[in-house]
Simulated scan of single mutants.
Amino acid sequence: MYDVIVLFDGYSENTEMGSCANCSCVLLKGKDNIIVDTLTPWDGEKLQQKLWNNDINCEDIKYVVCTHGHSDHTGCNYLFSNAKLIVGFSISSRDLYFDHDFAGGKPYIINEFVKVIPTPGHTLEDVSVIVETKDRGLVAITGDLFEKEQDLSDDSLWKSVGSGHDDMQQENRNKILKQVDWIVPGHGPMFKVPDHYK
């Protein structure tokens, strides 16, 4: 089983100049070390420092999963040259790309504790990571499928940053809420799923 370590809580806010945002970045420490969503390209130094604080080097990361291809979720992928990359529905290692039927609903099994499942809605190729943990039960790292905990009661928070696939996103949100105990959303702290969603 895994330790889920949120290296950085995501955030988003509207300003006069535009939206100010960065994603949640999560280290899954266990059998195969995994990082989920790698911030913006300007965050490499602080990301490396956080990993070192957790006794992990970039070379120790076996998988990088980016929940979708937006720049605030993929920016530091370049740090992890030993890792297999899963960016939305695309799986690659160096110049080799692997076939996988995410579009048909097939999960990608990393190991017996971690799988990557298709959860389109925010984009048509979003994925979420489901991980069995030592102390929190099942945790989903969902990227922008969930913006933040507050969007459970105010759906305008996720619909306002979506890409026009609201019905699909709502369906996948419901699926996640029914099966996991905790969620790490794209732009807010980890939260416990309220019991009434089960």
Rank of each mutant, 00 (worst) to 15 (best):
T119C: 13
C66L: 01
G75H: 13
A21S: 13
S156K: 06
L157C: 03
L51A: 01
E16K: 13
V184A: 10
S160M: 07
D101Q: 14
S92L: 02
D32A: 01
S128W: 03
T74W: 02
A21N: 02
T67E: 01
F191N: 08
N54E: 10
P107V: 14
D166T: 11
N111K: 03
V129D: 08
V6M: 07
V180G: 05
Q49F: 04
N57S: 14
F98S: 10
Y63A: 06
G104L: 09
K159A: 03
K192V: 02
D32T: 01
F80H: 10
S19C: 12
G186M: 02
N14Y: 09
D32Q: 06
K50I: 03
M168Q: 15
K46W: 01
S93E: 15
D154S: 09
W42I: 09
C25F: 00
Y197S: 05
G162L: 01
I110E: 05
S93T: 14
E112I: 00
V65D: 06
S160P: 00
G137Q: 14
Y108L: 15
F102Y: 12
F113S: 10
L79K: 11
M168F: 04
H100K: 11
N53H: 08
E125T: 12
G88M: 11
L157K: 08
K29T: 01
H122S: 02
G143I: 06
N82I: 03
W158H: 11
L152C: 02
V184P: 07
Y11A: 10
S163T: 13
D181E: 13
C76F: 04
K50N: 08
K159V: 01
C20H: 14
M168A: 12
L96R: 14
F8S: 06
D37Q: 11
A83L: 08
D167C: 02
E149Y: 06
V139Q: 04
F146L: 04
T38W: 09
V36P: 01
A103C: 09
D32N: 12
L47A: 01
L7C: 13
D72G: 03
D37L: 00
V87N: 15
N14R: 11
K50L: 11
